[in-house]
Amino acid sequence: MTEIRFHGRGGQGAVIASEILASALFAEGKAVQTFPEFGVERRGAPVQAFLRYDEKPILLRCKVYKPDHIIVLDPVLTKTVNITQGLKPGGWILLNSTQVPKNFRFEGFRMAIVDATSIAIKYRLGAKTAPIVNTAILGAFVKITNLTSLDHIIDGIKEYVPVKLEENIHATKEAYEMVRKI
């Protein structure tokens, strides 16, 4: 079983990103389970979403404590939240950022960055001050991990993102090209 944790802020679309990725993995024939951090969502507050997938049906019904990979939608969270908590050695950290934040330690993990914020703003996804970066970051994640295809992600976007479909797909493809392994 593989487990993925999303870190974001309320309004960035972390929960939807997790659902899109789950539907893409499901299209690959995997068993999937995804859920938000259980609570009351507020815009701007740190949020988490979790995803499990496996070759066999998933029985486990508890939170994710030791993720295989993490996806971070807001780089500022690296200063306030222990985002690598429980991350398995060798796991991917995908960060929405133009650069690796100062003093951020990622020894023992694999690291990649993508400027999903600029891409989201370019395609007018969300407000300029609060861009919705979820579809872009998924393009980057697929590129670095190869866990599913870009086509399956785009199918998932069609299902879960009812507005600005073309713009979201462009953003996903652009992040796919632009992501940089560190």
């Binding site: 999937v32 389970q33 995804t34 859920f35 259980f38």
Partner: peptide
């Protein structure tokens, strides 16, 4: 059904 553990959890 259990709150969140089922209500807000997506699966096939």
């Amino acid at each position: 059904l259990d709150a969140f553990v089922l209500s807000h959890t997506s699966e096939p």
